[in-house]
Amino acid sequence: MASRVLGTALFRSGFTVQDAPKYGAERRGAPIFSTVRAARGTAINERGVIHNPDLVVVADDTLLTVPAAGILQGLEQGAVVLVNSRESAETWQHRLNLDVQLVILPAAAEVEDRAELPHIGATCAGAAASLLGVIAPDVLAAAIGEELAGLGELVVEQNRRNALAAYRAVQDKKGLVREGKAVAAGDYTPPAWVELSVDDVGIAAPDVRAVANSVQVRTGLWRTLRPTIDYDHCVNCWWVCSSLCPDSAIRVENNTPIIDYDHCKGCMICVGVCPPHAIQGEPEYLAQQREAQSADTGAGDNNGTDTADG
């Protein structure tokens, strides 16, 4: 969303634009990234990854240490990195030995967890627009309106407010991002190509062979909806929910189904198929709030949860 807002704002400012998202697994918590290229007048022939970006925007500072995110690759002197972090710019520059211009994303209201910042996409786009120095605030506002039109006026307004606040907050660094140059063919570093050898099929085939370890991957973290069994209404027809769970995340003890929340992804199939309607669904964040509250008050609330397994 941030890249589309930035792309549309640049396009409305008279640039030729190319923007594109890139992602792998489509699940909660998986890193995604996107690129925006802008040129004055000419068509953009390059595509895909930007090898030497002029500006990198990092919406979540935990990505800095994820190799697959590749954030630190291709950063040349003079590049600007905008990071959403509670740590200071100096801290990150020191930790990662970076020789770039690092800017911390301003947060309208400081929160405990930066991932909880609202409208993070628009906030990133707003700060980035300011750092680029070629996008006027009204053009940024119009781009947000265009990109989020389908979500209603209230959502557009909230995003606009946050984006423009971020835009103003880094205004002292307006135009910090320089314009990149094309790679010259007269003087380039040749790629270090290698010849691949014929490897043993044991490592050359893309087959994972290890003792079953999928239980260690806590896929329950992907869940946005939580099914909860109300044992007052459960009639112990255990076979239905446990055999229709596509993740084998409902085990049965003494004819009683128990949900394994470490691995339940919240597909809600059990909610739909439960004959006595004893399994209820609710948003995960509400369930977590409820748990936190009952932990505070010391009240027991262990309906259908799977604390025995940790």
Binding site: G7, F11, T16, D19
Partner: peptide, 10 residues
């Protein structure tokens, strides 16, 4: 895929 499918251009 991606290089055109999800890539916006004029």
């Amino acid at each position: 895929g991606f290089y055109l499918s999800f890539t916006r251009e004029p």
